[in-house]
Amino acid sequence: MCRVIQILFNTLIYGSEIAIIAVGVALSYSILRFANFAHVQFAVVGAYTAFSLHQYAGAPIALAAVLAALLTGLFAVLVDWLVFARLRNITPEGKMIVSWGVALFIRSIVAAMFGGSARVFDVSSDTLSIGGAFFTLQDVIVVAATALAMLALHALLYRTLAGTALRALASNRDLAETRGIPAARMIGLMWFICGTTAALGGTLFALQTRLQPNMDLVMLLPVFSAVTIGGLDRVFGAALGAVVLSLAQNLLISVDFGTLFSGESWSVPTQFRDFIAVGAMVLILLLRPRRIAARAAG
């Protein structure tokens, strides 16, 4: 029983870390129709900004995280103004390649500024236990912060005029523009949301683990896998996808298949976790192509 609870806890914790980054990928996909590989860099930039504010400027972690999120939101708007806004009319493939260029540029500059070695937030949190399953106070904060961010995003998208405008742009760009929705301004808002959520996710991720310039590659595949499972252009589908992926990973490496089928204890080695993320993504893309393609065309 305690193992089941533990698996559920782990699923929720890792799922939260991925979900908050993944929603932005889905949001920008739904409106601009391209897979933005530079999105994960917003998480890296946000995490390093929060780290710098906390470590060098002495801001408390919560304040540093919020400030970094807002700054990264603006950074995302800046990146759009410098690059993507000038390339609205090229093919989705073109945008995707450009987004890799942006990603490569940002990650290398971060690495040049901070060096390749890892940095850690100097925090330590107590271990709690429910029914024999372990988690830390920090885990609770991560899950709670993600849940709050999701609620706020949901309220913004479904309870405000700007949110309605964003959803209108996503469902039919031309119609929305003819009805007088200021697309340019709304896209700016979209980038701000993307940058903010990603930065928050990056900071939470770094708090839990560590900061290093190549953390983008650690997050990239799980994030895109979550977005793919969720249906690519569905914001909260991506969040759900993150939880599903996390559950699949935690289940597969926790279940003792050996004892189930024979006497010897044997589980899937943990280093195969990455396979699950990549494999799930490829499998979903291959199995559901018609639905995805149909929606993309529509």
Partner: peptide, 18 residues
Amino acid sequence: GRLTQDYWALVTLGAGEI
């Protein structure tokens, strides 16, 4: 043949990593 380009790009990226 059944995927648009960006999905295929994701598949190839994933296949390389696998």
